[in-house]
């Protein structure tokens, strides 16, 4: 474990806590893409198939459970919670994400570490996570003004993978024969998708103005 990866995991956890705070405090999920939340639930369930077979550490198992439980809880809230579900931007959250799932799985069948169920699903989860934010970014562009907690949620979610890139660079430089091509290339693509959001987020922070993404 190195400082970059710890910072990445803590930033990821923070993004989830901010999202839970927004939904709990405002009893609203306006501005949040349910499709992105569902994609993340799929990402975690596909990535952590080894949850009960490979024990890495208490920290690793604990965080996997947190990620799976929180993503499923958020999807449940947005679908079934009597108050929260009413604020879902159904008519704005229309990204046809089935293509993202299909393309990620097709790519995982072609490019993976080993052709085993666990490795193919792991690669699938890596590719799917790289594009999982797209429905959310599209929703932000359509929904005009973005409330602070939603903006912070997306910011931390994008920042965590940037820390992971620093972690892979650090490990590549300090560990012999360390390679993470699948996660590394996907992580760069994933972080690049946030580039314009980071730009407008920085502008809104510098000008102390409302975060607004151009349509």
């Amino acid at each position: 474990m190195n400082i970059f990866r710890l910072a990445g995991d803590m930033t990821h956890l923070l993004s989830i806590l901010v999202l839970l705070l927004k939904i709990y405090a405002t009893k609203s999920c306006s501005g949040i893409s349910r499709k992105t939340q569902e994609l993340y639930a799929i990402v975690f369930m596909a990535r952590y198939l080894d949850l009960f077979t490979d024990f890495i550490s208490v920290y690793n198992t604990f965080m996997k459970l947190i990620f799976i439980a929180s993503s499923l809880a958020i999807v449940w809230c947005m679908r079934f919670h009597p108050v929260v579900r009413r604020s879902y931007d159904r008519e704005l959250d229309t990204f046809r994400y089935f293509f993202l799932v299909g393309a990620s799985f097709a790519l995982a069948l072609v490019w993976h570490d080993k052709f085993t169920l666990q490795e193919v699903f792991w690669a699938f989860s890596i590719y799917l996570e790289a594009v999982a934010i797209l429905p959310q970014l599209v929703l932000l562009q359509r929904s005009g003004n973005v409330d602070n907690l939603t903006g912070q949620y997306v910011f931390f979610l994008g920042a965590y993978r940037a820390f992971y890139i620093l972690n892979w660079i650090y490990r590549y430089m300090t560990e012999p024969r360390f390679t993470r091509w699948i996660a590394g290339i996907s992580g760069v693509v994933q972080t690049a998708l946030y580039a314009d959001f980071f730009y407008y987020y920085f502008i809104s922070w510098k000008n102390n103005s409302k975060l607004k993404l151009p349509a």
Partner: peptide
């Protein structure tokens, strides 16, 4: 041991 890619990370 050659750890398969990525399985010690979240």
């Amino acid at each position: 041991t050659e750890q398969p890619e990525g399985h010690d990370e979240l």
